[in-house]
Design a protein around this nucleic acid. Structure first.
Lengths: 186, 186
DNA sequence: CGGGAACCGTTCCAAATGGAACTTGCGGGG
DNA sequence: CCCCGCAAGTTCCATTTGGAACGGTTCCCG
């Protein structure tokens, strides 16, 4: 095949070894897993994709809701109430996208929105009865898909994974939101 | 605040506990971390977002490449060669999006493409010299951002995280690509 | 007080996106 | 040997997306 030497893998990356015997394994997948200086981001993006695509496609076919719309509902189901900006900060969707999403799910009668007394800029969103019913019908599908994806891990491994990922998330305000132009090597 | 009881958290979710003292902590972020039956997918999506948005915004501003375009280049940098479908399967972008991406980076002289002898359907992509130079200039920025995000973990924790996430990824063909209509409780 | 900065949500519009249909090339069973 | 099915890439086009600019509100500081 005469392939040029790929960029060297930089860091040895811990204990992990290639799992020698996997034969039908996609060559590119293996490279991204084991010869990738950005090992973390690949795992992240790959898993996120395999999680999101089937579920949000299902939500759209069965309930006619887009991903941002469902994300707003989901967020409200967890917190009980919140404003659009809370969802912006915890989901990363741009605020205009969420503004549209809120308008639509309000029109569908899934959420109620009222101005926040005391701060006229905010508007408080809450699930309506219909919204709550929708969430109770759909959440089990999300939970089931997640469990299936994690079924290769035992209970202890899942707990460790949850703990480590949370530890990373909790550092979040040390990260830049924007990377400046010139910097190639900091 | 009179918020309705959120959907119950289903599973106790391992050892992890709320980290009692975090005060300025966003209420919704905390709910999504600690009172979320889909704890895994939230961590996944949140981290992926905080990783992707600044970096791909930077790539676009500084090098004028879209995310799918850069993903193709990145994939080739790791494997040396591959066809568009390999990238589809390891990145999750739809194939028409990647088709456009390949066309553009070819026009920019960053990749070369030739028909695969022996199977005329495939086309083999390889980085050009310019493409390789671009990757060598930009990868360090990606690596640095990833390291910064993981800087709260020590070496051993990072190795554990890498191992566990890889273990999940390697199960990938047991997962459904599509979720069927009727199913609410399997 | 008063003016400027920051913040929330909305609107506008050019550009990216992705589902579906299409083209071309391989392969396997009558 | 020839169809029919399937896989890789491409094209088409309606929809979604998200950057930028805007209006209204609150906060801060002189």
């Amino acid at each position: 095949m005469k392939q040029q030497a790929p960029l060297q893998a930089a860091q040895p990356m811990g204990a992990a070894t290639p799992l020698a015997g996997v034969s039908g394994m996609d060559e590119m997948l293996e490279a991204k897993l084991w010869r990738n200086p950005c090992w973390f981001s690949f795992r992240l993006n790959y898993l996120a994709l395999r999680y999101n695509l089937p579920l949000y496609d299902w939500v759209r076919r069965v309930h006619g809701l887009s991903r941002p719309e469902y994300v707003v509902l989901y967020s409200l189901a967890l917190t009980g109430a919140g404003c659009a900006t809370d969802v912006v900060r915890t989901s990363g969707f741009p605020k205009n996208t969420l503004s549209r999403a809120v308008r639509r799910i309000e029109a569908l009668g899934l959420v109620e929105r009222r101005r926040d007394e005391g701060d006229g800029r905010n508007q408080v969103l809450t699930l309506s009865q219909a919204g709550r019913a929708l969430m109770e019908a759909t959440m089990p599908v999300f939970v089931a898909h997640e469990r299936r994806m994690l079924s290769g891990l035992n209970e202890e491994e899942r707990a460790t994974l949850a703990r480590l990922m949370a530890k990373v998330v909790l550092d979040h305000d040390a990260w830049p939101d924007r990377i400046e132009e010139g910097r190639d090597a900091p």
